[in-house]
Design a protein around this nucleic acid. Structure first.
Length: 854
DNA sequence: TTCCTGGAAATACGT
DNA sequence: CCACGTATTTCCAGG
């Protein structure tokens, strides 16, 4: 099937397609589309996107020239894909929207080399909405979903969705989706058994014991990934064969094909590719393997590009062709593997409602607030949630710390139309926020679930869509989201996947909302939760700090800090460390713990004196709780300030800086240690604070920009606002002030991510590249737009260009900065060093760069 | 009966 | 190649 389909789609290469888009509801369309996709692609000049006002919309993403991806807008000849029939709105919005959206209406790509595109193989894989190909039905669904999202402009579709959200939406889609991915989906109880097994089995062993024999090395650095992928992998051509993993194979791929993923990512990738890699990649990117795989898959999965997906497909195609693209793409698309499961084909119809337009790729960083809007996590999820495997039954929905469930609310939205809140599982490492390759959101249904939801796939990433209703104050209780763990071996085998699953057990719930504005622009906001530890073992053994009563202290120390968290033991140690930008340890000391006052959930520690009592500027350090050799909490931030000087927290703009930077810059950065956990509260503050502080710092760029951009033209203001205010606050107040709650979200994100960047040295990234590529692209952890950000560090660090592409660092930055004057602020977002880093480092050591080790 | 869990045995993986 | 320690996955059993 698939193959055939592909062939059919093969045209893709040609690029010219005319799509009947138009409908938000893709479902039906899809089919139709597939059969007769019509996408017209024209080669046009750059302006295409721009032309529209929408372009500006890109707002978040970009400043004018830069794209969301970070990739600069293409100037050179582009290939534009215009979907006809789509919603005008969409287009507009899209234009405004990041690339992805555009995709819907129009996609312009620069062609590095025509060839690249052309590769059918490439195309198919990615685009392939293969699902169809495979399962015409099921796949169609998924694909449709994806398409819907991607393609259809959110706006129109969604809103309507609101109406139906509950009922219909869930019903079909949900099941399908969920099931698809997970066993459930499959009719058969056990997911695997179903399609996957067969496929894989045939292909592989169901479980490859260890997929690659050689395994990977954990280090994200790239350690493992590379090997795995082998030839093809190099490129990561994610897109190619998401299928890589046997299991995933059909279903996934099919899904994968989701145009969506591709679209966004693809586009980005394409852009990137174009800009940077271009041809070369293509050649390589497409690597033999990839193709082969793709082929393989294709057969099964089929890459086809669906009509509906076409845009996407096109994009995808590009990606495929371009190695670089792939990289970026891979995550999304490829990931798909998990994605899963095609659901019932037919159910789609329902899904339609939800249709989401093409939105910014999931690995794009978006701000949490823009203009009047602010997306906030009112109630954070618990720091631990044991994810379930496909072989297991659901382990329930993620819960809140105090019982109940996480709550997300959109503030500042006065319209009467309901919106759709998107939820996906993102990474929680230092790098930019991106969909987590080893975890997928899992839709929970049942009598205990009060919130309707619907599953959709975006670039291989399951996205749970939840209605945000005005009658509920645009507030949603997230009691319908569980977390599915994918086997490391399956994911690591993916062609494009560079990340390793081992010890990569921390995730974040990422929420997004897309608000259509009268102007036609769509404002996309994103907020990430505090990190959630998903492994049984880690949850039982690793200490975890949820809150800390102090974030700063004068150099002499002596003050007491109460840590609240989990798995604290009587012999737990609290170690303060200071690392140089390069990760080398500059200082390390164990703090005194008041055992009598310590409990399993709390530790009372005495802040140790800083090594240098003559501080002229605040110095950021980290501390962690240690239960033993490999049982350490994530790094928590702490800032030592000059005796009389109030500390200002800022994020380390770049991760790099950390203390040093701070000092250097003068700004201090205090980090907010808690950031992670406390996230909500803290973050906001932090961020704001940070930014101000940061301003001078490098960081600023990323976030700020992001913020600014992201907010996008229209919204951007807010962002800016934020930044500014922060400053003021920061400076004056000193500590963080939580104010700007709305904004805070962003901060959150940033905060969380903080570590990553810096900790991971570039080298690291590189290794991780694949992942990174995928991730990396994400340039920004941050909330913001793709723009970038932080990425600098990241990008730089990261290795491979692939990822970087998306980032589009330079331009963006500049633009960003430009955009928001404030941007200069640099709010950088730090990524936290999440434990992962540490863990890896520790474990791995190997990583040369391990920043930590230093 | 299905869904949730908590536990823990099997496996894998790395050294 | 084996032993060991740790991490990941699969199973089991109870509510």
């Amino acid at each position: 099937m698939k193959l055939a389909n592909k062939n059919a789609y093969g045209y893709m290469p040609n690029v010219s397609l005319s799509l009947p888009l138009g409908n938000p509801c893709l479902p039906s369309q899809y089919h139709s589309l597939q059969s007769s996709p019509t996408i017209s692609v024209s080669v046009s000049e750059p302006h295409t996107f721009d032309t529209q006002d929408d372009v500006r919309p890109a707002g978040y993403y970009s400043s004018s020239s830069i794209r969301p991806n970070g990739a600069p807008t293409l100037e050179s000849p582009r290939i534009e894909i215009t979907a006809y029939g789509q919603f005008p709105e969409d287009e507009v919005e899209e234009s405004s929207l990041p690339v992805t959206k555009r995709v819907n209406s129009i996609v312009t790509l620069t062609l590095p080399s025509a060839d690249g595109y052309r590769d059918p193989s490439c195309l198919s894989p990615t685009s392939s909405i293969s699902s169809r190909s495979c399962h015409s039905d099921a796949s169609s669904y998924e694909s449709s979903f994806s398409y819907n999202y991607d393609n259809s402009p959110q706006n129109s579709p969604w809103q309507s969705p609101s109406v139906s959200p509950k009922g219909s939406t869930l019903a079909l889609p949900g099941d399908g989706c969920a099931s698809g991915g997970s066993p459930r989906n499959s009719p058969t109880t056990s997911p695997r058994t179903s399609v996957t097994d067969e496929t894989w089995l045939a292909q592989r062993n169901s479980r490859p014991n260890s997929p690659c024999g050689a395994k990977r090395k954990y280090n994200f650095n790239g350690s493992g990934a590379p090997h795995k992928h082998y030839p093809y992998s190099p490129n990561h051509s994610p897109g190619l064969s998401p299928q890589t993993s046997p299991r995933l194979s059909v279903t996934e791929e099919t899904w994968l094909p989701n145009t969506n993923q591709y679209t966004n990512s693809a586009i980005l990738a394409a852009i990137n590719a174009l800009t940077t890699d271009g041809m070369a990649d293509l050649g390589e990117g497409i690597p033999m393997k990839a193709r082969k795989t793709s082929l393989e898959h294709s057969p099964t999965v089929s890459l086809k590009v669906e009509p509906g997906g076409e845009e996407l497909s096109t994009v995808q195609l590009c990606e495929d062709e371009h190695p670089t693209n792939r990289l970026s793409l891979k995550k999304e698309g490829y990931c798909g593997g998990f994605l899963d499961v095609p659901q019932h084909p037919y159910s789609w119809s329902k899904p339609k409602q939800y249709v989401s337009p093409s939105l910014p790729a999931l690995d794009w960083q978006l701000p949490s607030s823009s203009g009047p809007y602010s997306l906030q996590i009112e109630v954070q999820p618990k720091s631990h949630h044991r994810a379930h495997y496909e072989t297991e039954g659901s382990r329930g929905a993620v819960k809140a710390l105090a019982g109940g469930h996480p709550v997300v609310q959109l503030h500042g939205y006065m319209e009467s139309e309901p919106l759709t809140l998107q939820l996906f599982i993102g990474t929680a490492d230092d790098r930019l926020l991106r969909p987590h390759a080893f975890y997928q959101v899992h839709r929970i249904t049942g009598k205990t679930v009060s919130t309707p939801s619907h599953e959709a796939l975006h670039n291989n990433t399951k996205v749970l869509e939840i209605p945000l209703l005005p009658e509920n104050n645009m507030r949603a209780i997230i009691d319908c989201a569980g977390i599915l763990k994918l086997r490391n071996s399956d994911i690591e085998l993916r062609k494009g996947e560079t990340d390793i699953g081992r010890k990569n057990t921390r995730v974040r719930m990422v929420f997004r909302v897309h608000i259509n504005q009268a102007t036609g622009r769509t404002v996309s906001l994103q907020v990430a939760s505090n990190p959630i530890e998903c492994s049984q073992r880690s949850a039982q053994e690793l200490p975890l700090v949820d809150k800390q009563s102090l974030e700063t202290c004068p150099a002499p120390g002596g003050e007491r800090m109460l840590l609240e968290g989990h798995n604290f033991q009587h012999d737990s140690k609290v170690v303060f460390v200071e690392k140089a930008q390069d990760g080398h340890h500059l200082w390390e000391t164990e703090a005194k713990i008041e055992r009598d006052a310590s409990k399993p959930n709390s530790l009372l520690v005495e802040i140790p004196p800083y090594r240098n009592q003559r501080l002229s500027t605040p110095v950021r350090v980290n501390f962690y709780v240690c239960n033993g050799k490999r049982k350490r909490s994530q790094y928590q931030r702490f800032t030592y300030v000059p005796a009389s000087v109030p500390t200002i927290k800022t994020e380390p703009h770049d991760d790099y800086d950390a203390p040093l930077l701070c000092a250097q810059h003068g700004s201090t950065l205090s980090m907010h240690p808690k950031s992670y956990f406390p996230s909500q509260v803290m973050t906001p503050v932090m961020t704001s604070d940070l930014r101000p502080c940061v301003v001078g710092g490098t960081y600023s760029v990323s976030q700020q920009r992001l913020a600014a951009k992201p907010s996008s033209p229209s919204t951007s203001p807010k962002l800016h606002d934020l930044s500014p205010s922060p400053f003021s606050k920061c400076l004056p107040a000193g500590p963080a002030v939580p104010h700007q709650s709305p904004q805070s979200p962003v901060p959150h994100i940033s905060i969380i991510q903080e570590t990553p960047g810096r900790y991971q040295p570039p080298s690291l990234y590189a290794p991780s590249s694949s992942s990174s590529s995928s991730q990396p692209s994400t340039p920004t952890d941050g909330p913001f737009s793709p723009t970038m950000t932080s990425s600098q560090p990241v990008s730089d660090n990261t290795s491979p260009g692939a990822q970087q592409h998306p980032k589009v660092p330079e331009r963006e930055r500049s633009p960003l900065q430009e955009d928001g004057s404030p941007p200069t602020l640099a709010v950088s977002i730090k990524q936290e060093p999440q434990e992962l880093d540490q863990m890896y480092l520790d474990d791995v050591h190997t990583l040369p760069t391990s920043s930590l080790d230093g």
